[in-house]
């Protein structure tokens, strides 16, 4: 195994251990169960057999919880390292700052993906038990694109953590992620209704901000629409990879310039 691969391995393992040590996942699972249990047993007007609302709520929770876990992992890494001064022995070793950024990114991403796998497993079990439908092509695509979303959020969170405090970083990243999820596709139409300055600002946001709405296949999955083509899926994943790479370049630049 090459030196860089071994270094990455160590950093990834440390991130995974950190996530499971903090027991955030346990809290999230208990919260999810508390919220979903009443919905699972609801029979409005005495009719059982309504599944869409349950699937939608469960998937919405998967979305919320995965975003919060990802942000929790990615935004805390560097601030804690600086606070506890563990970054100094790390940088004293023959590890480049770029490797540290990439290692931390891959560590945070793998921790987030591991949590996502658990969430989707819970979702599949819940829906499978209720509806006797276990797997579908859209479900696989939804998971793949969700991984793409986590790639982008982790990169933004990690980059932001070199510029802002943890709370400011989390707040701003959440605003960007959910703002774009809700309004990303409508930005050109909104821009056309604005004055020149507003139009320019919104078009810049449209070009630069992460299009989190690309990763949202909940509508297709929940309402039973057909799967998208795998070509489109690949394009969206390429977008996620490109956006994350750009963010990591900025993070690398920031870490290089940071006075330690």
């Amino acid at each position: 195994m090459s030196l860089i691969a071994r270094q990455m391995n160590v950093l990834i393992r440390a991130s995974l251990l950190e996530l499971y040590r903090r027991k955030d996942l346990v809290v999230v699972f208990i919260l999810g169960a508390v919220l979903l249990m009443p919905l699972a047993f609801a029979t409005p007007f005495g009719f059982s057999g309504a599944h869409i609302y349950f699937n939608e709520m469960a998937l919405l929770m998967v979305w919320f919880f995965s975003v919060f876990i990802t942000l929790g992992v990615s935004t805390r890494m560097f601030p804690y390292e600086f606070e506890k001064r563990t970054i100094y022995p790390l940088l004293a070793k023959p590890v480049s700052r770029g490797t540290v950024v990439l290692g931390r990114y891959l560590g945070a991403l793998s921790a987030s993906i591991s949590a996502l796998v658990l969430f989707y497993a819970a979702y599949i079990i819940l829906c499978g038990v209720r509806q006797h439908v276990w797997f579908s092509e859209v479900l696989v695509q939804a998971f793949v694109l969700h991984v793409g979303l986590l790639m982008v959020i982790t990169a933004i969170g990690l980059t932001g953590s070199l510029l802002l405090t943890i709370s400011a970083n989390v707040t701003i990243t959440l605003l960007i992620v959910f703002g774009m999820l809700l309004f990303g596709a409508k930005l050109p139409e909104l821009a056309d209704q604005q004055s020149l300055a507003g139009k320019i600002a919104l078009y810049i946001a449209y070009a630069v901000a992460p299009h989190t709405e690309f990763f949202d296949l909940r509508q297709r999955l929940v309402h039973g629409w057909p799967a998208i083509s795998w070509g489109v899926c690949a394009v969206v994943m390429a977008y996620a990879a490109a956006y994350s790479t750009a963010c990591l370049f900025v993070a690398d630049l920031l870490l290089r310039r940071k006075k330690l």
Binding site: A185, P188, H211, E213, D216, V235
Partner: peptide
């Protein structure tokens, strides 16, 4: 449905969302 034109983002959205 606004025209897709040369906007790749709109093209992706058109394929992702029903």
């Amino acid at each position: 449905r606004p025209e897709v034109g040369r906007d790749p983002f709109r093209w992706i959205n058109r394929h992702i969302h029903v």
